[in-house]
Amino acid sequence: MIIRPAYFGVRPAMMAIAPSFTALYQPTLPLPESLRGSVVAIGNFDGMHRGHQAVLEDAVQEARASGLKAVMLTFEPHPRTVFRPEAPVFRLTPHAEKAHIARAIGLDAMVSLAFTPEFSSQSPDRFIEDMLLGAFGAHNVISGYDFHFGKDRAGTPDYLRAQGLARGFGVTIVDMRADRSGDAVSSTRIRQALEDGALNPANQLLGYRHFLTGTVVHGEKNGRKLGYPTANMKLPLNSRLCEGVYAVKLVRQDGSLHNGVASFGRRPMFDNGPRVFEVHIFDFNEDLYGEEVRVALYGYLRGEARFDNLDGLIAQMDQDSAQARGILSHSKPLSELEERLWG
Score class of each variant (00 low, 15 high):
I3S: 14
I3Y: 15
R4W: 08
A6H: 12
G9F: 03
I17C: 10
I17D: 02
L24A: 07
P27A: 05
P30T: 03
L35N: 06
S38I: 00
A41H: 01
F45Q: 05
H49K: 10
R50E: 13
R50V: 12
A59S: 11
L68G: 06
K69H: 12
A70W: 01
P79A: 06
L92A: 02
L92M: 09
T93E: 04
R103Y: 01
A104G: 00
E118N: 08
E118Q: 14
G137H: 06
V141E: 01
Y159I: 09
A162L: 11
V174M: 10
D179Y: 04
S186G: 06
I190T: 05
L194N: 01
A198E: 13
L205V: 01
G214W: 00
G219C: 09
N222K: 14
L226V: 01
Y228M: 10
P229C: 08
N232C: 03
K234R: 15
K234A: 12
N238W: 12
R240T: 12
G244W: 03
V251F: 13
F264K: 05
G265L: 04
G265S: 04
R266F: 04
P274I: 02
F284A: 11
V293N: 00
V295Q: 04
R302T: 14
R302K: 09
L310H: 12
L310K: 13
Q316F: 02
Q319L: 14
A324Y: 05
L328I: 02
H330F: 06
L334I: 02
E339D: 08
G343C: 09
